[in-house]
Design a protein around this nucleic acid. Structure first.
Lengths: 232, 232
DNA sequence: CGCTTATTTGAAGCCCCTCAAGCAATGTGG
DNA sequence: CCACATTGCTTGAGGGGCTTCAAATAAGCG
């Protein structure tokens, strides 16, 4: 349910990595052909396999990227929040969206039609160069995760997943950082069952490292989790 | 032991994805500042953490990219063969090489100094665009692998690793496809121990799916392995 | 209140890791 | 050409971490 709205504030979003180093004329042109839309939680931006016809920039809110693999299991790739670009690989590479984008928390997005953004990249080489850096960083992130999985225990994986979520979509509170997530999502991010997640999170509760209710985890001792994630 | 040699044959290497769509003038300039070198098996192109000062294009031979993770285990990211680009993410992103490049089979390489290649990208936007596609494809590959790991048995993982190797660096023979690899490498690609690899490969031998000697595997029934990799 | 969704907990079992030992192929030096 | 070390591979036994299956509890929602 994308609802076109007023032009977004240039000054805010032009800070996104994708637009670094571009002059105000270029920025004006880029944002001139952009569309702003707002989406409610539980809506879907696009499904895995859809034709990649738009590139999105997250202004606010949280969007979950998840993927269904050949064996039928689904796993969470990443949570996207303010400043993140969604759909870059698919749009730059002319392939279907490789993942599903699901709105976790009410979000405001700016988007561009694929052919238009391609034109913009042709006319502004800096934009292409920025995109290259961005995709490169993404690659590194996934390669790192590939390595982290090796030989890690379930507890390490979950600790990492929780901390990653806290970084990407956590809310600071007086007694810690609150993360909105289900045990199932944590399991899908870590490649383990939600039974194991539940057992381990319960244990953390007992130790006072976190508080955890249905659909959320409050991290009380981030440092302790960090130590756990690195294997004590 | 890099040995500068004659200028490489343009007609051959300009087919690499990185150079698609570039006119002969651009190609002449690009290859004009390139350096050809040949390396023997067991030599190292660069180590993980080294400053990324060169971009390599593989003309022939096989180069193994491997990474040591925080927990001390090493894992094989990929084998690179003719047409593959090595060091792209690091050079494009101005960060140290994230992996070590080890020559598995005698190789001939063409390489560019980092600042020079950066200049080339500035002057030839198509080159940047190609690089973006290339890195994007690489990202997808790793994301796919992240998903495949979930819920896969050791046998599935090894089957996939062997097939991937066959694709990336296999040699067709009369009775199958020969892959030069140790059990240890297969283990490092799959995130399992080489004991388990040995047990499973031995079992495949017993079933007649492969022949396997020290440092090599001959795939006799690729289709059977493919089925295994997908979980029967 | 029922119905669905999210979570907890237990018990059984299997897959894979760990550790230990031995074998075969390949060098290497005398 | 043999002695010996090294490297790569195989095989066994034991144990543990995680999955699977089953069941119960609790929270949200019409």
């Amino acid at each position: 349910m994308t609802v076109p709205a007023r032009l977004p504030p240039l000054s805010e979003m032009s800070e996104a990595l994708l637009f670094q180093g571009l002059d105000s004329i270029a920025l004006k042109r880029i944002f001139g052909v952009a569309v702003e839309s707002s989406m409610r939680a539980s809506e879907t931006l696009f499904h895995q396999g859809d034709e990649a016809n738009r590139l999105y920039l997250v202004v606010s809110g949280v969007v979950k990227l998840s993927q269904v693999t050949a064996n039928g299991t689904s796993h969470v790739l990443r949570l996207m929040s303010a400043g993140d670009i969604i759909g870059c690989v698919a749009v730059f590479n002319c392939c279907p969206y490789p993942a599903t984008a699901f709105v976790e928390e009410d979000a405001i997005l700016i988007s561009w039609a694929e052919p238009q953004f391609r034109r913009l990249m042709e006319d502004h080489p800096d934009l292409t160069a920025n995109a290259l850096r961005l995709v490169g960083a993404r690659t590194q992130e996934f390669v790192t995760r590939l390595g982290e999985i090796n030989g890690a225990t379930a507890e390490q994986k979950i600790a990492r997943a929780v901390l990653r979520l806290a970084r990407q979509a956590g809310v600071k509170e007086t007694n810690g950082v609150r993360v909105g997530t289900t045990r199932q999502d944590l399991a899908d991010m870590s490649g383990i069952t939600y039974f194991t997640v539940s057992r381990i999170v319960s244990n953390w509760k007992r130790l006072g490292l976190v508080e955890a209710d249905r659909r959320e985890v409050l991290i009380k001792q981030p440092h302790a989790l960090l130590l756990l994630s690195e294997g004590n």
